[in-house]
Design a protein around this nucleic acid. Structure first.
Lengths: 230, 230
DNA sequence: GTCTATAAAGTGATAGAC
DNA sequence: GTCTATCACTTTATAGAC
């Protein structure tokens, strides 16, 4: 599998900057190599020369943002776990390890805050669907790592329920990232993303602590791995 | 504003059936009028003849699903509110009025269950972005109606916090709809959507009941309408 | 590395025969 | 209403000049 390195400057960087904001605003499907190259007044062949293809450009953009975010999430999770479990705040610590890294805007170079969140929302909405399989697996392994961390501090909860709740939290985050900008239109005192994330942490922590006893939700015991397929 | 009526049979119905499943699988941006017409072995001009344009076809598909769902949600909410508040179960009743109508698969004619949920997820992920403004307003008014209903049974919670939490729940539902199918790959005893919705009701109800006292989340008092812009 | 020209295929929409 | 042919344009990608 080819490694993708992120250029600091030069022609590749210029094209990436253009691609990032266009993908953020219009989505992955509607942006053409012409839109990208024309935005920075380069020729139409430049994208294919520097990234091989349109797909190569898209993969580079996605990995530039997803990879450091994944690393930051896992690093914060490691730190939270080393500080020890059993404390009342451990659920919040894991949630913050997962949610707060989006606030660091890592991977971003020139992108305005609003477009950074939009782009991140699009990237995680389809779980790196535009990436080759090996890269997609990294999305999945981060999910699995977090679900197992929650399982340790919520021993009374079935893994199936935990996976479902984690999926809910992931959806809430993606929706927030995708629509925070439009949510603020016309507001004089805009909510910052930090405030929204803080709200989500509290909402999710309470929801996770709900002790589930449902008769009609049957436990699934056959293929554990299937639970992490998202 | 032109009314859009849904045909029961005939050429329009055939084209709609094709369009629905293609939009569900590939997304709104990648499906062409040729894909649609060729799927049911009709000529390329048929879409433009029957729907005026590609955009007209897309709007018809979206409204066919969104309109009855909106009506069902509001009808269930009215029923829940008439049964009286103050009971411990009122939060769950409102949540079920919002979430459970997706299980009825209303608006659907020929769509397999998996694709129905996918399509609904795509429709609500972008709040009817592909629709003319008057229709988009109906998405927003349903949200506002539900947030106000929650406010009555959660009087201690600021409207800003409520709106944020409702947005989280909406995101969780959309993510669930969009990925329920892939979530089940490889599972022998698949979770039904009904079970997932039941899990979401419990998770969300608990999260909504969390009594928020946060110093760093400042109340916004200027433009109330901006809170419902989603 | 940059750029123009072009290939080969696809796009939405429409004119006009039937 | 149906269908073919076609228009005017856009798409990704590449060959080849500089």
């Amino acid at each position: 599998m080819r490694e993708i390195t992120i250029p600091e400057s030069g022609a590749k960087r210029k094209l990436l900057d253009a691609a990032e904001i266009l993908f953020a605003i219009h989505g992955f499907d509607l942006v053409t190599v012409r839109h990208v190259s024309q935005r920075v007044e380069m020729n139409v062949a430049s994208v294919n020369y520097h990234f091989g293809s349109r797909a190569g450009l898209l993969a580079t953009v996605i990995l530039q943002y997803a990879t450091p975010l994944h690393e930051q999430r896992l690093a914060l999770l490691d730190t939270a776990e080393r500080k020890g479990f059993g404390k009342i705040t451990s659920i919040e610590a894991i949630l913050e390890a997962y949610l707060s890294p989006v606030l660091l805007r890592i991977g971003s170079t020139e992108l305005p805050e609003e477009n950074f969140y939009q782009l991140l929302g699009r990237i995680f909405a389809d779980h790196g669907k535009a990436l080759p399989q090996p890269y997609r697996d990294s999305f999945q392994s981060v999910n699995e790592r977090f679900i197992r961390a929650f399982a340790k501090v919520l021993p009374g909860l079935a893994l199936e329920d935990l996976a479902a709740r984690f999926h809910f939290i992931q959806g809430a985050l993606i929706h927030l990232l995708a629509h925070q900008a439009t949510l603020l239109q016309g507001t004089k005192s805009p909510q910052t993303m930090g405030q929204s994330i803080e709200r989500l942490v509290r909402f999710a922590a309470t929801g996770l602590r709900e002790r589930l006893v449902v008769e009609d939700v049957v436990a699934v015991k056959d293929t554990p791995q299937a639970m992490f397929n998202f």
